[in-house]
Amino acid sequence: MENIQNILYAAMWFAILGGAMGILLAVAAKVFYVKSDERVEEISELLPGANCGGCGYAGCAALAEAIANGEAKTSACVAGDEELAAKIAAIMGVAAEKPVRMRAQVMCSGTSEFAKKKYQYEGATDCYAASKLGGGDKLCPNGCIGLGTCVQACVFDAINVVNGVAVVDYEKCQACGKCVTACPKHIIKLIPYDSTHWVGCMSVDKGAVTRKYCDVGCISCRLCEKSCKHGAVHVNDFVASIDYEKCVECGECVEKCPRKIIWSDKSQRVSITINPEHIGEI
């Protein structure tokens, strides 16, 4: 009989304790109530949820809050398509904006066959670590180190290192820009998704110097600049670059480039890296 009394006694006290805690929390929930915007919830459900940070906010939840507060554009999600921007715009009650889809592009063509090395690197598998050792194992100071720091940084699994140069899979790339900031050589750029031409070199050395360390480096001969009828290609700091505002994708510069480093990608959207001109040589 005493046992049962003990059990009931304990149960009673715990019922009181638990009830007291429950009431306390219920009261606290009212007292400390923070008004939250239900649009935040709706928008974060729409966002991809990869927390890539490409929009410049800490994650998808932070972006949802910023959009709801009117701080960010409805098309701010770089990983989302037009449809997503339109849905978010509908929640916010504003006109939809058309996002410009971008993609990352590694501006280096110096695969292991073409770029010469100054030493054999056998350290940590990290481009930062390698770049501390005399700027990496390639002679070119602006060449891809190829140890895959961008591969690690990519949350969409869109980058691979092929033949010592990082390659972006366009279909998977959401242009979040993580690889752009991760690259110690700063040779990854975001370019418009639809543009099919780019200069695969960022070497800012004079032609004669570039020739010494890479077979496919820009020698700033300016043939591309002269050939372009639309004024879209310019050679500054001994390296050519394309102005995507003006480029009409005519492919004239691709034909003229003696180093074959202006890439045309009309035919092979996903698997790039190898310039058709070079295939015979490899």
């Binding site: 715990f14 304790l17 805690m21 306390l24 929390l25 606290a28 929930a29 007292v31 400390f32 109530y33």
Partner: peptide, 24 residues
């Protein structure tokens, strides 16, 4: 019954702290 009581207390306390911090 200290273990079960402490679990109850800690769980409620963390909830309370969370609400308090969120507000103030």
């Amino acid at each position: 019954l200290e273990t079960i009581a402490f679990i109850l207390i800690i769980a409620s306390l963390v909830q309370l702290i969370e609400m308090f911090l969120r507000k103030f």
